[in-house]
Design a protein around this nucleic acid. Structure first.
Length: 590
RNA sequence: GGGGCUGUAGCUCAGCUGGAUAGAGCGACGGUUUCCUAAACCGUAGGUCGUGGGUUCGAGUCCCGCCAGCCCCGCCA
């Protein structure tokens, strides 16, 4: 209904101008969706702020606006007579036949009323970003799931999206690991898969410990990084082997989650690091401090009130992550061949990096590397916590591997399903059980994460995410299954309907809910908050379940049947599309 | 010490540019099934929106102070 609201807005604006031609300030109708169903479809709050400048009671102002509205035939064609309520709200109700027309047009539109932008320049979504030589763990869960969903929404809107996996394949950590392996397991640096990933993780832990405790080891590691960054063939080969091995493990997780990503690790920007330093130098932003090249931030003070630096070149000559991030910003906004020519770049990383990104973004801004009219955004999210409110750990206190977490979700979904089948004395094939459990388990993990406002910490709970009632994936999937059930029992959902007619309040409620879809997608695209889409899909499922419970479909009167089937079809299409944008696949039976 | 985020019902959370009596789910309590999967639906109870000021026609939402929790703070990412 976005297009209708735009039309209404301009009609309101015009009516206000006609009613109060003397007012010079911009007249804003303040048109928003009605806060409650009994107030109609939209409400215009614009009369209230005019009370003071016009020295008139707001209801009188609203009356004058409504008077003008009623003189506009395009308005009366669209809406019933407006009502003035409360202190001066103008409540607008669309004509039922217009709502039915909107439904009809969506039934004929595979995009369900969501317009496609004609965008040539890409949007970069930087997400997931695990580290080479480590396993993906619960810390990568949110970035991976949220980033994928945002990418899907942006793609659906028509943006060319670059899904970039900025894997940690460079830097000090590699120096540590390679140095350690040279000493304890040199074969791992020369032969592919000489040690498995689990061992690599153990080696990494040992290396990290030595790095923290042993100054000699620390120095050797730093030298190793410099060698690597300098292109030393032995180091490079070892590095390549480690990356290949990790990459294959990551891919298994991505395949399982149905997530597509282009790997472009930190190392990719290696050739562009020196130019970052030169560029900052040319802009006069660079300051040498204690041997390190820094840019001091404006408006951010550290202890003792001195400005905080962003270090772009360490005193040993090496570059660090800030340098890489700056090079990445230049590359992503830059035009080809060495550039992505993006107009919007978003980073889906944990909220703990907010300061880092604020600093890096400021430096990029001051260096003039963010083109006018383009957007550079950090999309932060909170920690994953256990049900005890602390950082999620295994019972033995280790980090939870992503693989294990997904396995457990699916196992629990399967156990639930089997006990339910037994209870209902249903018999299903093993294939069915595995397919349903796999879909439900992964959907539950994704939905639970996405349905919460990402900025807050997220309390992870298998029991809650797999619950069959409430705002959960199973509840939404069940709504889709119910509609599929209607189709199986003889309802032809694809039957074309020339005349839509709705009589029951439950039908109208469903119609109105269905028509909100386009506005929700626009909101997610803008705000990058997938939980808004989740909230909508949950609401839609509830409204549908109410309809399903209280209004017969297959046993409807012949004149009502086609319209009700059409509502079912549009509901199923909307749920499937919406869930698809969350990265969740639906089922026909469960 | 400085900065960021958070604080809303017993629990987990919504609350979009400030707008009508602050919403949902779970849990609790009470109902509904000869009918499309009851994995559902209907109802009841439950809140000084951390706290004190301020801005204004109007504040959970904006501004300032304070309290509590989490995170970050020069050569890790």
């Amino acid at each position: 209904m976005l297009s209708l609201s735009h039309i209404l807005e301009s009609q309101l604006r015009a009516a206000m101008q006609r009613a109060f031609p003397a007012v010079e300030a911009e007249l804003n109708p303040q048109l928003v969706p009605a806060s409650k169903p009994e107030f109609g479809d939209f409400q215009a709050n614009g009369a209230l702020p005019l009370a003071k400048p016009l020295k008139q009671p707001p209801r009188q102002i609203a009356t004058a606006i409504v008077e003008q509205l009623l003189k506009d035939p395009t308005f009366t064609d669209l809406c019933l007579e407006p009502e003035i309520a409360g202190p001066g709200f103008i409540n607008l109700t669309l004509r039922p036949e217009r709502l039915a027309m909107e439904v009809a047009s969506r039934l004929a539109d595979e995009r369900l009323g969501v317009p496609a932008v004609q965008a040539a320049s890409p949007v970069v979504v930087d997400f997931s970003s695990p580290n080479i030589a480590k396993e993906m763990h619960v810390g990568h869960l949110r970035s991976t799931i949220i980033g994928d969903s945002l990418a899907r929404v942006l793609e659906f809107r028509g943006h060319p999206v670059l899904r970039l996996n900025h894997v940690g394949d460079w830097g000090t950590q590699f120096g540590m690991l390679i140095t350690h392996l040279k000493q304890v397991a040199p074969e791992a640096l020369e032969t592919a898969d000489a040690v498995d990933l689990g061992d690599l993780v153990a080696f990494y832990r040992e290396a990290k410990k030595r790095f923290d405790d042993d100054e000699v080891f620390q120095a050797t590691s730093r030298e190793e990084v410099v060698k690597l960054q300098g292109g030393d063939p032995v180091s490079l080969k070892a590095w390549g082997l480690l990356c290949d091995q990790s990459r294959r493990e990551f891919q298994k997780i991505y395949d399982r989650l149905d997530i597509r990503l282009s790997e472009r690790g930190e190392s990719f920007y290696n050739p562009f690091l020196a130019a970052v330093i030169d560029g900052l130098q040319q802009k006069g932003l660079l300051v040498t401090d204690a041997g390190a090249e820094c840019v001091f931030l404006e408006g951010v003070q550290g202890k003792d009130g001195k400005p905080l630096p962003v270090i772009v070149q360490k005193s040993d000559g090496g570059f660090n992550y800030a340098t890489t991030d700056l090079a990445a910003i230049r590359y992503r906004f830059g035009s080809g061949p060495d550039g992505d020519a993006a107009r919007r770049v978003v980073y889906v990383t944990d909220a703990g990096q907010a300061n880092h990104f604020a600093g890096v973004f400021q430096v990029a801004e001051r260096a003039g590397w963010i083109p006018d009219g383009s957007r550079l955004e950090h999309v932060p999210f909170g920690l994953v916590q256990g049900e005890d409110g602390k950082k999620l750990k295994t019972r033995s206190g280790d980090t939870v591997r992503l693989r294990d977490l997904l396995d457990e979700a699916v196992e629990r979904a399967e156990a639930d399903l089997r006990s339910r089948l037994a209870q209902e004395e249903r018999s299903e094939s093993e294939e069915f059980i595995h397919h349903v459990a796999g879909t439900v388990g992964l959907a539950a993990v994704k939905y639970a994460d996405l349905s919460q406002n990402r900025i807050t910490n997220y309390q992870f709970s298998f029991d809650r995410m797999l619950a069959l009632q409430g705002n959960t994936a199973p509840y939404l999937l069940y709504a889709v299954v119910r509609i599929a059930g209607i189709a199986r029992k003889g309802g032809d959902l694809d039957a074309s309907t020339t005349q839509l007619q709705f009589t029951e309040p439950q039908e109208w409620a469903l119609v109105r809910e269905l028509l909100k879809f386009d506005a929700v997608i626009a909101e997610v695209e803008e705000e990058l908050l997938p939980n808004r889409l989740c909230a909508y899909l949950f609401e839609l499922s509830q409204v549908f379940n109410r309809f399903y419970d209280q209004v017969p479909v297959l046993k409807a009167e012949p004149e009502a049947l086609p319209s009700r089937l059409a509502l079912c079809r549009l509901t199923a299409d909307t749920l499937k599309l919406g869930l698809g944008l969350l990265g969740i696949t639906t089922l026909e039976r469960m």
